[in-house]
Amino acid sequence: MKWSEISIHTTNEAIEPISNILHETGASGLVIEDPLDLVKVRENVFGEIYDLDSSEYPEEGVRIKAYLPMNSFLGETIEEIKQAINNLLIYDIDLGRNQVSLSEVNEEEWATAWKKFYKPVKISKKITITPTWEDYTPVSSDELIIELDPGMAFGTGTHPTTVLSIQALEEYLNTNDTVIDVGCGSGVLSIAAGKLGAKEVFAYDLDEVAVASTRLNAKVNKMDQRITVKQNNLLDNIDMEAKVIVSNILAEIIVRFIDDAWNNLVEGGLFITSGIIQNKKQHVKDELEKQGFEILAVNEMEDWISMVARKN
């Protein structure tokens, strides 16, 4: 079978929303070529830097690549993707060059070539994310392993917004807490919460692909008995008492359900938000405080921000 590789030259700010658009249109095997990966200062424990070739990266911005089957609907699908990306301008998201190009790829080549970019990565003190095809042995007795298949949906779980969310969960989550994951995507945050000791996790996403992906990843990580997954729009019609609500989603979406988050948290409960860009930071902070939340922490990684807020 032949596939068409769609390549979008854009900005770091647009990675998450464009990735979501690609997944919603049925794209597979997402690859992000970010030149910042070439200069990151990090431990080379797993050798993930050695596989990177600078000639494959743009000089500025980022390239997002995904793969679509070459069929009679390809032209329409490409136009839908372009239109959806252009619509992101409504939300003041910088698209940079916003150049879209196509090339043909044979299935056998694609099926294995993209895997070289994914290696085990330790993203917090306890949690390491590893592709399902990698043989990985924990280096310490308290290390927690999350296995993901990036070919399923929503990337590898190592984007800064995800890392910030997991680091916050690791710091603030207590054993036997009830957790809600809003916009669960691949389910990586739900799985992390379960591995960190949450009694039960409720994962919600409007996208049926995300719901299926979360269920599958939860099963792979033996967390399916602890994680309840449901297709739902944010926290609409959800009524429960959770100790922690975590959401790695766009700032514009976060502010829409702050009141619902408040209503579904116990006194002293925590609202962990991520996916916030710099020019949205103050707006999210103001809306949280307006609702009555106390901001406990504001953490940053690269150009991304997460906040931890407590219901007083």
Rank of each mutant, 00 (worst) to 15 (best):
K2S: 09
E5G: 07
E5Q: 14
E13M: 13
P17N: 03
I18A: 01
N20Y: 06
L22M: 13
L22H: 06
L30P: 11
L36P: 03
V41Q: 13
V41I: 14
I49Q: 12
D53C: 08
V62L: 07
L68T: 05
N71M: 07
F73W: 11
E76L: 13
T77Q: 14
N86D: 15
I90K: 14
D94T: 10
G96E: 10
V100P: 05
E104R: 02
V105R: 13
N106W: 06
K115G: 07
K116Q: 12
I127Q: 04
I127M: 09
I127R: 08
E147I: 05
L148W: 00
L148P: 03
F154E: 02
T158N: 05
H159Y: 07
P160D: 04
T178S: 15
I180A: 04
G183Q: 02
G185F: 01
V188D: 02
I191Q: 04
A192K: 14
E200W: 04
D205V: 01
V211W: 03
L216I: 06
L216P: 00
N221F: 03
K222C: 06
K230V: 01
Q231Y: 01
N237P: 08
I238L: 10
A242G: 08
S247D: 02
S247I: 11
S247E: 09
N248D: 07
L250V: 05
A261M: 07
N264L: 03
L265E: 06
G268C: 11
L270R: 04
T273E: 00
S274N: 00
N279K: 11
H283I: 08
K285T: 02
D286P: 01
E287N: 14
A297N: 12
D303W: 10
D303Y: 08
D303T: 10
W304T: 02
I305T: 11
M307A: 09
A309L: 08
R310E: 15
